[in-house]
């Protein structure tokens, strides 16, 4: 299963590389623009990802599971969601950065509803992004977004998390 997915991804990467190469050879403009998009996005990722994964590595080695269970686990109640939102506000990057962080939190004992809250909250209330948003669109816009989205995020995460836990859903290890 895992190797099958790896092979599919690699086929795409090879085909894409060939497409980019030929586009440059025959001056196919759409192909050149697509390759420029890919490079721009890739360079954004390369800037952020190594640091994120080093922090995840340090987190896995140093932070005790009991600490995470206490603050984000099944017994954490409302505090778990508040902690998830606070942690989310310090996240950088985008959704794709919060996935691996959430995954590690889960395997240290965080409840599913807390990691779903973390993922969604990191999409709406990252501090650096919010400052940017206020300066371009205005503070009222941002406040409406916060006050409407955060309760909905917590409620929906709780419903989704509880539903999955009732059906004994677990995340596959080893990612």
């Amino acid at each position: 299963m895992k190797t099958k997915r790896l092979i599919i991804s690699m086929i795409f990467v090879v085909l894409f590389s060939i497409f980019v190469y030929i586009s440059h050879q025959i001056n196919f403009v759409p192909g050149q623009e697509i390759s420029k998009n890919a490079l721009d996005f890739l360079s954004n990722i390369i800037k952020v990802f190594p640091g994120v994964f080093i922090l995840i590595g340090l987190f896995e080695v140093w932070i005790k599971a009991s600490t995470i269970e206490k603050h984000f686990g099944k017994e954490s109640g409302i505090k778990g969601y508040i902690m998830a939102i606070i942690l989310a506000s310090t996240t950088i990057g985008g959704l794709f950065v919060s996935f691996p962080v959430a995954y590690s939190l889960y395997h240290k004992g965080a409840k599913l509803s807390a990691i779903f809250t973390y993922i969604s909250a990191s999409a709406v209330c990252r501090v650096p992004m919010t400052i940017f948003e206020i300066s371009f669109i205005g503070v009222k816009f941002t406040l409406v977004r916060f006050f409407v989205s955060l309760p909905l995020i917590v409620i929906s995460s709780k419903l989704l998390g509880d539903h999955l836990e009732k059906h004994n859903y677990t995340l596959a290890p080893g990612k």
Partner: peptide
């Protein structure tokens, strides 16, 4: 910690490249 970081990065790399495309 650094070994974990590298391993995790390698695990997600295929999907990451797929997303870039």
């Amino acid at each position: 910690a650094y070994k974990i970081a590298i391993q995790k990065l390698l695990n997600i790399l295929p999907s990451l490249l797929l997303m870039v495309i």
